[in-house]
Amino acid sequence: MAAGTAVDTSAAKKPSWGAAFTRSEALRGWTLLSPTTILMVVGLAAPLVIMLLYSFWKQEGLTLNTDFTLANYAEVSGKYYTVLLRSLWIAALAAFFTVLLGYPVAYYVAFHAKNSKFIWLILLTIPFWTSYLLRVFALRVIMPEELRATPAAVVIALTHAWAAFAILPIYVSLEKIDRTLLEAAADLGDGAVRRFWRITFPLSLPGVVSAMTLIFVPTIGDYVTPSLIGGGKPATFMIANIIQGQIKSNDWPLAATTAIVSMIMVAIAVYFFVAALKAASRSLR
């Protein structure tokens, strides 16, 4: 404050909102946080709720019948379970292979890359930032003719596309491991392999779990990869292709239902995956 100024008590005299604002950290924090939170409530939560409502309505020709019905759910589970299961299966395989291939690379960068870590991390993330459409297309170009338009091709393309999402979380969890733990294990007589399975791997599991979920959840709804790789053939259709078809034929309630059912399946799958992994990690002692 400038020379000789007395205390400015204007804020203190009135027991106003301003004074409470100055005093309360929570109030100031929420004021700052609220615009983004409101954005997400309006732009994300509200649309999802309305979509949920739609799933209980019925499209009849050009009119929307807003009487409550479960007909859409019956239709989805009757008609689309093959595609739903295929989507789950493809997404699960993609997540698994991306992590399986990405783990050694993350390990290499964390433990062996030494001074070139930064370059490696940039090299590994650049593909992620370049056009997804063109990457998938280019992959299709170099694929053997007979592989195209198969679910395996979709898995390969996804494994390529999501590489960064596997490597980065695993790298972070490996990087966090205290190196003296490994020295302690060596000191206690563990060789390199046992050290890996008893120390490194269990400690990197959080990274593995977040990598798996980060890949599995969004790939279930992937549209570009099956469409481009499969060239529009139903053998590679995933759930997004179905939803896109339903939107095209203006049956939004059915599309909403399909989307919601697939999300419920994803949630269940993730839940069991995490539970299974927890059980498995207990056996690594």
């Binding site: 404050m1 007395a6 205390v7 008590t9 804020a11 203190a12 409470a20 100055t22």
Partner: peptide, 16 residues
């Protein structure tokens, strides 16, 4: 401070 209650007066309005 200087006879004035300062609770609610933020740091930038105090002679400290």
């Amino acid at each position: 401070i200087d006879g004035q209650p300062v609770t609610g007066v933020p740091a930038n309005k105090r002679p400290t």
